[in-house]
Amino acid sequence: MRKEFREAIIEEVDDSRDLPEGSIDIRMEEEVGDVPHDRGDDDEDAILDDELLSGPDIDDFEETNSTIGQMVNRYDPMCDHNENMFSLGMRFESHEQFKNAVRKYAVINGFNIFWPRSQKKRMEAKCASGCGWRLYGSWVQAEKTFVIKRVGSLHSCNRSLTNRQATSTWLAREYMPKIRARLTYSATEMQTDARERFALILNKKKCYRAIWTALSHIRGPIGKQYDMLRSYLEELKRVSKNGTFMMEVNPATKVFERFYVGFDELKNGFLAGCRRVIGLDGCFLKTGLRGMLLCAIGRDGNNQMFPIAWAIVEVESEASWTWFLTRD
């Protein structure tokens, strides 16, 4: 009797899955004695992918995650935050890192999102335009990580030119390197850069707040800077032995009032090479503590301004001008 044999084609199953861009592939050691299971045909794989996209139940995440694959998908802050960066099981160091990653993703890709839940252990983001995009993550105490446990469908809405996630705090953090490199970075420059980089239209007041926040972080609190004035005064006296430097504090309230700076080298330079004309002027200080800046200015041989002395006072008045002009 003739026997018919069919040729068996054995396909080698690749346990690795393509990770989305913006994640780090970390292999986990397989347990000894594990035997790979048959995965079925292409239709079964498609069904499995659909189930992962819709997201498993939150309570069954640990059990489901163990069957997905032997990989841990960790968020990389240096990624380009493209539209497909988030995946089920992606790990974050904390809920703050998760929120910052979602916020940067939303701004770069031009999607408006909102946070139905924003807590330390549970966070959820949804599309503000009403499409099916959604992310849900929570803290896994056993791993000490924040994990994405549900991923919705891709965005189907149009790109937005305004974004509620581009807050002044986020802008301050994003533009901190540029502001640190040039402290005179302006709000107009920030508006132009955001329009070119993110196709984002920013309100000028928001840019001002972002720059002020960044400068406050770079310079530190103004109150602590005033605590260092006595050390600064002693350093000035050390550098210019014959200079005139003075600080006055209200004796009753112990609050700073005035500070005078007069380098001996500048006075000698004025006498040696400037016209015998002195200009006096004052201007407001636009800091959190306000005050006035009083200046004595001369003109050098190139008809340029030559500073002679200056002082910071509480207000511009006859008493403050008299105090300024009667210093040696």
Rank of each mutant, 00 (worst) to 15 (best):
G220D: 09
G220N: 09
G220T: 11
P221W: 11
P221T: 10
K224A: 07
Q225N: 05
Q225K: 12
Q225G: 06
Y226W: 08
D227L: 11
M228N: 14
M228Q: 14
M228C: 10
M228G: 07
L229E: 09
R230T: 10
S231K: 15
S231D: 15
Y232D: 01
L233I: 11
E234S: 10
E234I: 02
E235G: 05
L236P: 05
K237W: 12
K241V: 06
G243T: 12
G243Y: 14
G243M: 13
T244D: 12
M247N: 03
V249W: 09
V249K: 07
V249D: 04
P251G: 01
P251Y: 00
A252P: 00
V255I: 08
F256V: 00
E257C: 09
E257G: 03
V261E: 06
D264F: 04
E265C: 15
E265K: 14
L266Y: 06
K267R: 13
K267Y: 10
K267V: 10
N268G: 04
N268L: 09
G269N: 06
L271W: 13
C274P: 07
C274R: 07
C274E: 02
C274M: 06
C274N: 10
C274H: 08
R275V: 06
V277P: 05
I278Y: 11
I278F: 12
D281S: 08
D281M: 04
D281V: 02
D281K: 05
G282D: 07
F284K: 08
L285E: 09
K286M: 06
T287A: 05
L289I: 03
L289S: 02
R290H: 12
R290C: 07
G291S: 00
L293W: 12
L293Q: 09
L293P: 13
C295L: 14
A296Q: 04
A296D: 05
A296N: 04
A296K: 05
A296T: 01
I297T: 15
I297K: 03
I297M: 14
R299G: 00
R299H: 05
D300M: 03
G301V: 03
N302G: 09
N303C: 02
N303E: 02
Q304I: 01
F306W: 12
I308E: 14
A309Q: 15
W310S: 13
